[in-house]
Amino acid sequence: MSSTTRESTRDAILEGALEVLQRGGLRDARMEDVAAAAGFSRQSVYYHFRSREELLSALLDRGLGDLVGEMQRAVASAPTEELVLVALRFFAANEVLCRLLVTELWGISGDPNEPREIVARLDAEVTGPMARRLEEEAAAGVITCDQPWITAQALLGQVTGVAFEPIVAGKTVDLELIEPVLRGFTRAVLGLPAESATSGAQSGDGRS
């Protein structure tokens, strides 16, 4: 099997796993169901992923890669107060990733190293770039931020709080309700003036 074929097969299996997890919970996900959803035999799934845990870990890794890419693009171009909203929208659109993150960070997977690896990756590839952006804008006088790293952690922590709790509880993340509150909170933390109702609807056109 060529490397290209192997990679495309792995991707198809991961898509099948995502479909199975979207239909049900982590506890009910079986390799047989993943194989059926992906259109492969059970043996093919086990050829690429030796266990259910390895499959879920690969799915989590792919999801984290998508999150990192989304956040790094936002750090490069989005208005500062929009960064946390980008993370919020990503998690709201990727409920399976949220559930996997909660599972791993609570240590349910049984691998004591994986939660530490996830946190280290998020720190390096999400929190770090956001903190550097805050530091640059604070130095330029655009925002007020004495502790960029802690501020980035705190703002991203707000996202996980308002997104993960309803998702894990099987509820919908109400973006229309949450986004204005989170944007206002972020602007207050960064020393930006409060938005009027009309300017809030127009935000996202450029940097603050």
Score class of each variant (00 low, 15 high):
Ala12Ile: 00
Ser208Pro: 15
Val102Tyr: 00
Ser203Arg: 06
Arg42Thr: 14
Gly24Asn: 13
Tyr46Ala: 14
Asp174Asn: 13
Val86Ser: 08
Val142Gly: 10
Glu53Ile: 15
Ala35Asp: 09
Asp205Gln: 12
Ile13Gln: 14
Val181Asp: 00
Arg10Asp: 02
Gln158Trp: 05
Glu125Met: 03
Met130Trp: 11
Ala35Gly: 07
Asn94Trp: 06
Glu32Ser: 12
Glu32Gly: 09
Ala87Gln: 12
Thr5Ser: 08
Glu32Asp: 13
Glu7Trp: 01
Ala78Trp: 01
Thr103Lys: 10
Arg133Cys: 09
Glu125Gly: 01
Arg89Phe: 05
Ala93Cys: 15
Ile178Gln: 06
Pro112Cys: 09
Arg89Gln: 12
Ile150Ser: 04
Pro180Ala: 01
Leu14Val: 00
Ala36Leu: 01
Trp149Ile: 06
Cys145Gly: 00
Ser196Val: 02
Cys98Ile: 00
Glu54Arg: 15
Gln158Ser: 06
Leu156Arg: 00
Asp111Lys: 12
Leu60Phe: 06
Thr160Met: 09
Ser3Asn: 02
Arg121Lys: 13
Pro148Tyr: 11
Glu104Ser: 15
Ala201Gln: 15
Ala194Phe: 12
Gly200Pro: 05
Ala74Val: 14
Leu156Pro: 00
Gly69Gln: 05
Glu54Trp: 09
Ser203His: 08
Thr127Pro: 06
Ser203Lys: 01
Glu117Ser: 13
Phe164Ile: 07
Ala36Lys: 02
Ala194Arg: 14
Asp111Ser: 06
Leu67Ser: 11
Glu136Ala: 04
Leu156Trp: 06
Ala38His: 01
Glu165Ser: 05
Val68Leu: 00
Leu85Cys: 02
Leu175Arg: 07
Val168Glu: 06
Ala163Gly: 11
Leu88Ala: 12
Gly39Pro: 02
Glu114Val: 13
Leu101Gln: 14
Arg6Trp: 07
Glu176Arg: 10
Gly204Cys: 08
Val75Gly: 12
Glu179Gly: 07
Ala163Phe: 00
Gly191Gln: 09
Ala154Ile: 00
Met130Lys: 08
Val162Pro: 08
Ala124His: 11
Gly39Trp: 03
Pro193Ser: 07
Thr9Asn: 10
Arg6Gly: 14
Arg30Val: 07
Phe90Cys: 09
Leu155Lys: 02
Phe185Pro: 10
Arg99Phe: 04
Ala17Ser: 02
Gln158Pro: 01
Gln158Asn: 01
Asp28Arg: 09
Gly24Arg: 14
Met31Glu: 11
Leu190Ser: 03
Met130Thr: 13
Gly161Trp: 09
Glu82Ala: 15
Gly157Pro: 01
Arg42Ala: 12
Glu195Leu: 10
Glu53Asp: 13
Glu195His: 12
Leu26Ser: 08
Ala58Pro: 11
Gln158Phe: 06
Gly24Phe: 03
Phe49Leu: 15
Pro112Ala: 01
Leu101Pro: 01
Cys98His: 02
Ala93Trp: 03
Gly191Cys: 08
Ser51His: 10
Ser44Phe: 07
Phe49Cys: 13
Cys145Ala: 04
Ser199Pro: 10
Ser199His: 09
Val86His: 15
Ser44Gln: 12
